[in-house]
Each structure stands twice: as structure tokens, then as C-alpha cells.
Design a protein around this nucleic acid. Structure first.
Length: 212
DNA sequence: CACCAGGCAAGTA
DNA sequence: TACTTGCATGGT
């Protein structure tokens, strides 16, 4: 299994190169982006980020104070904008109550404790929590998304319908250089899913992982 | 026109 | 525990 997963990584990396995730100017931008991109293309989430940036509103205190309706309109392009506005507010309430919007403080908390805390916020599930932990706070946790599950079950690494923690565990038990590799590997899997053969209706002929 | 995108929560059985 | 549904814009 170690060899297989590392082999996949090598193939993906040599096919696609470095992905430079997460595209953001600050850890806070990653946190916001993680919520905005839920079940949504990055292109649409990014437009919402830009509309916040353009008005200099991409800051914890600003979004915290902003009326819910105003926030919803600003992030409209990300889709599900009412629910995502509420989720952003929920996260900022958590961030203020527990860490006073202080990045140093939240960064000091150990991975598992912070993961549990994030999961208590309404609107933050496992993938969003792990995206924040890995890409905003550089914690060694693997992010699993629908592409990851599809790719792994299609290549018979896990059974179809394997749950989140099961898939996550496969990566975390079998890879070294945690943060660096977890960051790049997840990004490469998304790249593969987007551009090649692992959409819901695949034509797997050119998939770089075939012939493994 | 249909289908999909870097999910999650709440309801039901 | 396992399955279903609502949430919504914008690109292909």
C-alpha cells in the first residue's frame, strides 16, 4: 500500500507538477475560501473572495460585524449564498469567542483538539475542517474530497462507499513528510479529477494512474 | 437543454 | 447507521 500510494503521487506529480495550493494571500483567506468552495467550483468561490477583497472586507472583524444580508449579497457568486453567509458568521463567532481572531493562538492548538472544535461549528464538516487545518494552519492532516474517494475506489485502494475517516487513514498511515506531501497530494488528486478521467462518467483512457 | 462544481445539516426510517 | 433532500450560482 505504501508503494502504491507513493507511486500514484509520483505519477501525478510528474504529470501535473506542483499545484501551489491553497491559492490565497493569507491564512484567513484560506478559511473563508474553504467555506465558500463547499460543493462549488473554485472559480465561483474565488469571485466571491474577490468581491470581498475589492471592498477591503476580507478581514475577521469586518465580516464578523457585517449584516448577514450584506454578506450574503457579496458572496452571491459562490452559490448557496444565504447558507454560506450564515456559515461564515458561525465560524467567525467561534474564532472570536475562542481565539479573539488571533492566528498565533489558534495555531498553537494541537491537531486533534482543534479538529474536534471546528467540527462543532455549524457549517464546518470534515473536509472544511481539514482544509483549514492543513492549508491555513499547516497541520499534518489529509483532506479527503469526493474526487479522492472516487479515485481510490476506482483504483481499488478502498471499497466503494468507504467513509471519510477510512480514506483519510489510508493516506495518513502510509505517507511521510506529512504537511508537504498532504498538501501537494490532495491538490494533485483534485487536478486529476477536474481535468482527466475521474468525473462521474469517466473515460479513463488517458488517466496517468492507469497501468499501476 | 442537462449536468457538474475542492459539502453540510437536518429530516426520515 | 444509512439514505434523502435543500441549498444556488455560473460554466460547459
Amino acid at each position: 500500500m505504501k508503494r502504491k500510494l507513493n507511486g500514484f503521487f509520483q505519477k501525478l506529480y510528474s504529470s501535473f507538477g506542483r499545484q501551489y495550493w491553497w491559492p490565497a494571500d493569507s491564512p484567513f483567506e484560506v478559511m473563508v475560501g474553504a467555506i465558500l468552495t463547499q460543493n462549488t467550483s473554485w472559480a465561483n468561490a474565488e469571485k466571491a473572495i474577490l468581491s470581498l477583497k475589492k471592498k477591503k472586507l476580507l478581514a475577521p472583524e469586518k465580516i464578523f460585524k457585517m449584516p448577514l444580508k450584506k454578506l450574503a449579497l457579496l458572496i452571491k457568486s459562490a452559490g448557496y449564498y444565504n447558507i454560506k453567509a450564515r456559515r461564515l458568521k458561525n465560524f467567525l463567532q467561534f474564532y472570536f469567542d475562542n481565539y479573539n481572531f488571533n492566528l498565533e493562538k489558534i495555531s498553537q492548538v494541537d491537531l486533534l483538539s482543534l479538529r474536534r472544535q471546528l467540527l462543532t461549528v455549524n457549517g464546518i464538516g470534515q473536509e472544511t475542517a481539514d482544509s483549514i487545518l492543513l492549508y491555513a494552519l499547516n497541520k499534518p492532516v489529509f483532506v479527503v474530497d469526493s474526487y479522492t474517494k472516487r479515485i481510490l475506489s476506482r483504483h481499488r485502494v478502498v471499497k466503494e462507499g468507504a467513509d471519510y475517516l477510512e480514506v483519510q487513514d489510508i493516506f495518513m498511515r502510509n505517507l511521510k513528510n506529512k504537511v508537504r506531501i498532504f498538501n501537494e497530494y490532495h491538490a494533485l488528486l483534485v487536478k486529476l479529477g477536474k481535468d482527466y478521467c475521474l468525473k462521474k462518467n469517466p473515460k479513463c483512457g488517458e488517466c496517468p494512474l492507469d497501468g499501476q
